[in-house]
Simulated assay, not measured.
Amino acid sequence: MDVRRDVAAGVRQPWQSSHALLVIPIVLIVVITVVDQLVPADIHLGPLLVIAPAITASFAGPWLTGLIGFLAVGAQAYIGWHFGVLFSRNVLVQILALAVLSALTVFYCVVRERRTRQLAQVRMVAEAAQHVLLWPLPEQIGSMRIACLYLAAEAEAQIGGDLYAATPTDSGVRVMIGDVRGKGLSAIGEAALLIGAFREAAHHHTSLPTLAAALELSVARNLPELEPDEELGERFATVMLVEISDEGHVTRILSCGHPPPLLLSPGSAVTVPVHPAPPLGIHGTAPGDYTVDVFSFEPGDTLLLYTDGVIEARDADGAFYPLPERAAQWAGSSPEKLVHHIRRDLLDHVEGRLDDDAALIALCRTPSPHRTHRHGPGLHVGGFAHGTGSVPR
């Protein structure tokens, strides 16, 4: 697993750097020992030796810290021997105090390393949970090139309440992106519920309205078991469903309270108009209550799906992240480069600290010269249209 390699690399790098930094406490011990012998007899610098193990603990483990502590105690004993007062009460107390403080510093290092290992283990578990919940999307599904990004707001977390999934069907590709209200384990559980329901229902419902109704039914059936008592009846999820046909360039989307996607062409970013239904979990909705919006997704274009954690991210002055303007700058990039640019720019905008989870999916239709153009009713190349759940398939 990649996280294990990352943890191992993170362990090797501090170990190598600590060897270089070890020169500092060693030089400090030598300098204090030499200077103490040169200053007048009534000035005692030996107690300053405690600085050496103290600073070593900031960059090294217990073994190296213990070694420096041992050298510091030895230097203190040498100073006492040099002046012929090694067994005097004052020098013995100084040696004992230095040994005790060094031992406490080593104990602190042991506790710190244990917690570091525990944190590394938690990260491995979080990474495994992320791969179970949010399966990495393939780079290519049919004629679609895909790149995705997930940024969790919680410190040290890999997953949260945002979700996405994609699955090939007999007629094309279906994609879902969503955002569960709330944070913590309950939000993760609800996200897992929706992803599992989508992966199963996407293959059993021929239209997006019936698929959305099936997700609503699944949420209504299972959500009460996941809601915290203090938020009973207040949890919901916004979802965007996308159906990209293999034949022609017709693409259908259905929004359940989710922000509309961006359609990127070289040099431009257009917001796809949607007619959103209520979020899932608000109240029961029949298939006829949903509106399917239809547009033309041409080869070379990129469809950018995102959660509100992206567009609601604020900078130090409180300004929202201008996703359409920024995405237009990289409209001609591949999905991987587009997601990379937005990730770096978004984190720069918020100075590295997000207040909410953020997710992105970039889908690029690869050119296919052998595919014929087929457009739905009322649909023009480069235009948008909408209809009810009865839109012909």
Rank of each mutant, 00 (worst) to 15 (best):
A54H: 01
T56P: 08
H82S: 14
A77W: 08
I79V: 04
V73P: 01
G84W: 08
A75L: 03
L64T: 13
F70H: 04
G66C: 01
V73M: 06
T65P: 14
W63L: 13
G61L: 04
F70E: 10
L86R: 06
P53Q: 08
S58G: 09
F59W: 06
L64F: 01
V73K: 00
S88W: 06
Y78L: 06
A97V: 14
Q76R: 07
A77E: 01
L67T: 15
V85M: 06
F83D: 05
A54I: 12
L92H: 07
L67Q: 05
V73G: 13
G69P: 02
I79R: 09
G66R: 03
Y78A: 13
I95R: 05
S58K: 12
G74K: 13
H82L: 12
A97T: 04
W63S: 12
G66E: 04
F83Q: 07
A72F: 03
R89Q: 12
Q76P: 02
L96A: 15
V93L: 13
N90D: 14
V73D: 13
F87R: 08
A60W: 02
L86T: 03
N90H: 14
H82G: 10
V93M: 10
V85F: 11
V91E: 08
W81L: 15
T56Y: 00
W81C: 08
S58Y: 03
A57W: 03
S88H: 08
N90I: 05
V73F: 00
A72G: 14
L64C: 11
W63V: 15
A97L: 15
